[in-house]
Design a protein around this nucleic acid. Structure first.
Lengths: 92, 92
DNA sequence: ACTCTATTTAGATGAAAATCTAAATAGAAA
DNA sequence: TTTCTATTTAGATTTTCATCTAAATAGAGT
């Protein structure tokens, strides 16, 4: 279940871009929303999915909510990919 | 685009199981379908998506179609995941 | 308490995904 | 060339997803 949730979360380009943004530093929901040509509500929906997948964590400060990346959850995905024999160049 | 296609393909548990099956050896479409409690047509649909994502390749032999894993396509995904800082144990 | 401001939640809509049954295709075998 | 067998394609249905607008919440500042 966790795998599907993680992978579905990152299968969407908007959500990947959010994670890429959060690579550098944390941003408030509003800051994140402003980077996209989408309604705040839509971005909030994407944030909710990322949060549910534990790919981001929130930290409340003043009346902002800051989101930050939690990439540890990728471990399982990496393990799975590597288990397929992967990923690299050894198939030549 | 390729990323989304790859990730959407593996976001589905049935398709992941198909890839896991193909880790060992190639199987015909019918053999694959028999492992699932789904109609042949449905499994064929999943195979089509995996093929479109280039995660599997087909080889025709007799009147069977054998599918085999192509994991090289994960490279891009791995690169992306690693670019996020991850995904190992270094966050302790 | 009232009013801003940041964000989420609710409810609706359209598009995409997963599934089924039935029909079509294509090749092997007879 | 007729019949089997393996597989896909078509078409219909149900569910899930991405999106919007409008309304609700919650906390800060006044």
């Amino acid at each position: 279940m966790a795998m599907s949730q993680t992978l579905k979360a990152i299968a969407d380009p908007v959500r990947r871009q959010i994670l890429e943004l959060l690579r550098e530093k944390s941003y408030s929901a509003g800051d994140i929303a402003s980077k996209f040509d989408l309604s705040q509500a839509t971005v909030s929906y994407h944030l909710k999915l990322l949060k549910k997948a534990d790919l981001i964590r929130e930290r409340k400060e003043k009346n902002y909510i800051y989101y930050e990346l939690n990439a540890t959850v990728f471990e399982e995905v990496l393990t799975w990919i590597y288990s397929l024999g992967i990923g690299g160049h050894e198939n030549d």
